[in-house]
Amino acid sequence: MNRHLDTFADSIIAGKRLSEGEAAELSATSGTDAFALFLAASRIKEHFLGTGIDLCSIINAKSGRCPENCAFCAQSAHHATDSPVYPLVDEERIVACAKEAEAAGSHCYGIVTSGTTIRKGEELDRICRAVRRIRETTSIAPSCSLGIIDQETAVTLREAGVETYHHNLETARSFFPSICTTHDYEDDVETVRVAKRAGLTVCCGGIFGLGETAAQRIELAMTLRDLDVDSIPLNFLNPIEGTRLARADLITPLECLKTIALFRLILPEKKIAVCGGRERNLRDLQSWIFFAGASGTMIGNYLTTTGRPAEDDWQMLKDLELTAGSCRE
């Protein structure tokens, strides 16, 4: 199998696209062959993206009371959790957190709000004002994750200085009804298309450990390839008390790494960042994400859970003799 994986890597570097059947074959990799899979993914990543590591941070700018019923989400109004609830924070707070993220070494800064969409008027205007100030006073690249948006909103964000729009599909189309029934999967797909039409780069990925099969993980990767998104955040479920998935089992560290490697083989030239849930799911193998094909990671806290101190992640990169890159093209 090791030689077989070398052949896969060579052909992908030469321009071949991995088929769904080939990806399914590789998803069954086990034992020492898994390490050969990681090596193949690492070779591909280095060929297309080099050795630099992209670092990003986010602010939970509006939290809780989301009308969507996503089974994993602590901010859903359908769940009784201890997640914080507050309206959109003020402009000063958004800008201050951007400066903190830049000081911590992040190159991208995501403004994230709960809810189906952002309200036009004061909410959208406040975010746009903050983005303009971030562009004027920092070198960090502003990103927004504001839910399902229309073309007018996407253009407004781009004109304000937003570089990237983030909107996860969460899981495969075939599994989505088991996770969310309050909106249709196509609404999320259309938001990705809207952002691309507006001239924004698109960050779009999913979360694993929801009960999906290996085939459905591949299905999601193929959808992202068809949509030609620019970067892919990979999250791993951190079960939250009060949600429908509170008792879900964690994915094993090696299964996490295999998932990262498969996404790299399917999406060879795309930026792939490992984000939420890495501390709890990967445990002592967090540093292996870069050898499994990841090109970036999120530092600092997540939406409703804490990450580890940024200095720990910087030490990890130093120990691996890796350097931080930049998410700007």
Results as ranks from 00 to 15, higher is better:
193 R>E: 13
162 V>K: 04
299 I>A: 01
310 A>H: 14
135 R>G: 02
21 G>I: 08
136 E>F: 01
222 M>G: 05
5 L>P: 03
279 E>Y: 10
43 R>W: 07
20 E>P: 00
23 A>Y: 07
302 Y>R: 10
106 S>W: 05
285 L>Y: 14
6 D>L: 12
172 A>N: 13
2 N>S: 10
70 C>Q: 05
177 P>H: 10
134 I>E: 01
315 Q>H: 01
294 A>T: 12
45 K>Q: 15
38 F>V: 04
181 T>N: 11
2 N>E: 14
257 L>G: 07
174 S>D: 10
315 Q>N: 08
243 T>F: 01
41 A>D: 13
106 S>E: 13
77 A>K: 14
108 C>W: 04
53 I>W: 05
328 R>D: 14
202 V>M: 06
31 G>N: 07
38 F>W: 13
208 F>I: 12
207 I>P: 06
106 S>P: 10
303 L>N: 05
100 E>P: 00
278 R>P: 04
300 G>R: 15
167 H>R: 09
62 K>W: 07
29 T>S: 15
13 I>L: 14
322 L>W: 03
236 F>E: 12
251 I>H: 06
152 E>C: 03
37 L>M: 09
39 L>S: 12
292 A>G: 05
235 N>Y: 11
44 I>R: 03
304 T>G: 02
123 E>T: 07
55 L>C: 03
155 V>T: 14
215 A>F: 00
218 I>S: 09
1 M>C: 04
172 A>P: 13
79 H>C: 03
38 F>M: 15
136 E>P: 03
225 R>D: 07
136 E>R: 11
170 E>W: 08
198 A>V: 05
11 S>C: 06
295 S>A: 03
10 D>G: 02
243 T>E: 08
85 V>C: 02
312 D>I: 02
243 T>Y: 04
198 A>I: 01
160 A>W: 05
311 E>A: 06
136 E>C: 03
311 E>I: 11
200 L>K: 04
52 G>W: 03
148 I>G: 07
243 T>D: 09
25 E>H: 09
